[in-house]
Amino acid sequence: MNVDYKKLWKLLIDKDMKKTDLIPVAGISSNVLAKMNKGEFVSMESIQKVCKALECDVGDICVVNEVEEKK
Rank of each mutant, 00 (worst) to 15 (best):
T20A: 12
V32R: 00
M1Q: 09
S46A: 15
W9L: 02
W9C: 02
N65P: 01
N31F: 04
C51I: 07
I47T: 09
C62D: 02
K52Y: 05
T20R: 11
A53V: 07
K10C: 06
E68M: 12
I23R: 03
I28F: 01
N31K: 04
L8H: 04
V58W: 01
L8R: 00
N2M: 11
Y5H: 05
S30K: 12
D57K: 14
V3M: 10
D21T: 06
D21V: 06
K71H: 11
G27R: 00
V67P: 02
I61W: 01
N37C: 12
E68I: 11
L33M: 04
C56Y: 01
Q48I: 09
I23Q: 03
S29L: 05
A26M: 03
L54H: 08
T20Y: 13
D60E: 10
V67T: 11
E40K: 05
K6M: 07
V64R: 04
M1K: 12
N37A: 15
M44V: 14
V67E: 14
E55H: 14
K7N: 12
E55M: 12
E40D: 14
D21P: 00
D21N: 13
C51E: 02
Q48A: 11
V50A: 03
E55Q: 15
E55F: 06
D21R: 03
K15C: 06
K52I: 14
G27N: 05
C51P: 10
A34M: 04
Q48Y: 05
S43W: 01
K10L: 13
D21C: 07
E40F: 01
C62Y: 01
K15W: 13
S46D: 06
K18D: 14
I13G: 01
G27E: 02
W9R: 02
K49A: 13
V50T: 06
Y5A: 09
M17A: 08
I23S: 04
Y5R: 01
I28C: 04
D14I: 14
E66M: 12
G59S: 08
S30C: 08
A53S: 14
Q48F: 03
K6R: 12
N31L: 06
V25R: 04
E69Y: 08
Y5I: 02
T20M: 12
L54M: 10
C62N: 02
K38H: 13
K49R: 11
Y5V: 04
Q48G: 09
I13Q: 13
S29P: 01
V58N: 04
C56H: 02
K49V: 10
T20H: 09
E40M: 06
L54T: 12
D14A: 14
W9P: 00
D14H: 14
N37F: 03
K49Y: 04
C56N: 05
D16S: 15
A34S: 15
S43M: 03
I23A: 06
E40C: 12
L33H: 03
M1T: 11
S30W: 08
A34V: 03
